[in-house]
Design a protein around this nucleic acid. Structure first.
Length: 337
DNA sequence: AAAGTACGCAACCGCCGCGTC
DNA sequence: AGACGCGGCGGTTGCGTACTT
């Protein structure tokens, strides 16, 4: 099901290519050219679909491919081109002789992502700390909360775990295995310094806010294979303050450890998952939300989040618009790679 | 040393646009 | 006009292995 049309007609092998298969493909293409890819497997004596042959040739067997890691110059070029072209990997790869779109994509999704997280959070945190005269640790907590999207409601419902994410202040996370910090220091910090209607713009329109939905948090930077569910938690006081309507119900009430036992919380999570999809479609486009998780998706989300954080910073009373530009920060960061 | 975890990379999936009939 | 095949592309995932506990 779902296979390309050329793959439906014959039995096809999948998975990694053997050296023998590679040899057959190379021999065929160097002798006859690839011609119509859908006929290549038959002519070359391979039990693969044409698409698979094409991919193998383009991404691995082509004689003009470069091997080995990308050079610093190539990495810099990818970053520059990505800032112009976005995720158009094929377009980017055209400017890198011997490199494939797949290679560029893999590079971006692994290497750059790491740099993004390790550089951007401290940079933003120091900015927030200075502008708001708060301790660096508190600023780091705040920035980590927004920038580092480790709060997740995953759609992998077959395995259910509640787990805190180390980068997220514990007061924002309910976990069946640990006691949240009752002081809610970070909530208070953020609440004090930033109007939460700015942080979560969808709350500003209470009429369109369905309290039965969970708070929208974003993807899992540590990859889907963790299979953990990070459940956002806000106190009733904070939620009511956000929406300005005491009739509204805390959307995270069912997972609030002060309101139910861990078993109840566990049962609540699948319901939250059921509600996440419609939530996504109703949120303002400026706020990134994902019900799933993947590296590439999260790079995109993280980029949106950085823009969002920039908006927050520039809207703060003490901010200076000229010095708080995220693009300036990003430029400084990336130029060092 | 063994088990668990993190990560990079190769390969697959599904969609889209284009050309052909 | 629209059905179909194909190439191309971006997003996603599975696997092997290096690393950590």
């Amino acid at each position: 099901m779902g296979h390309h049309t050329c793959c439906n007609k014959q039995k096809v092998k999948r998975g990694l290519w053997s050296p023998e298969e590679d040899k057959k493909l190379i021999n065929h293409i160097t002798t006859y050219g690839h011609g119509c890819w859908s006929s290549v497997p038959r002519l070359a004596g391979l039990e693969r679909c044409g698409k698979s042959c094409r991919l193998r040739w383009i991404n691995y067997l082509r004689p003009d491919l470069k091997r080995g890691s990308l050079s610093p110059q190539e990495a810099t070029l990818i970053i520059e081109l990505h800032s112009i072209l976005g995720n158009r990997w094929a377009q980017i790869a055209k400017h890198l002789p011997g490199r494939t779109d797949n290679e560029v994509k893999n590079f971006w999704n692994s290497s750059i992502r790491k740099k993004f997280i390790t550089h951007e959070v401290p940079a933003l945190a120091s900015l927030v700390a200075v502008q708001n005269s708060i301790p660096p640790e508190e600023a780091t907590d705040f920035v980590s909360l927004i920038v580092n999207p480790n709060l997740i409601i995953s759609d992998e419902r077959d395995q259910l775990y509640l787990s805190p994410s180390p980068s997220v202040p514990q007061s924002f996370v309910h976990d069946a295995d640990f006691k949240p910090n009752p002081s809610n220091d970070t909530v208070d910090l953020i609440h004090h310094h930033f109007p939460l209607t700015t942080m979560f713009p969808f709350f500003s329109n209470a009429a369109s806010f369905d309290p039965s939905w969970p708070l929208p948090f974003v993807g899992d930077l540590d990859h889907h294979r963790h299979k953990k569910y990070h459940v956002p938690y806000l106190s009733n006081e904070v939620v009511q303050d956000i929406v300005g309507d005491d009739k509204l119900v805390n959307p995270t009430a069912g997972v609030n450890p002060n309101e139910c036992d861990p078993l109840m919380a566990t049962q609540k999570v699948p319901q939250l998952c059921d509600n996440i999809d419609p939530l996504v479609s109703r949120l303002p486009s400026c706020f990134p939300v994902s019900a799933g998780s993947s590296y590439s998706q999260n790079m995109h989300l993280a980029t949106n989040q950085m823009e969002f954080v920039d908006t927050i910073i520039t809207s703060m009373p003490s901010s200076s618009s000229s010095s708080s530009s995220l693009s300036a920060l990003s430029g400084g960061q990336y130029s060092n790679i």
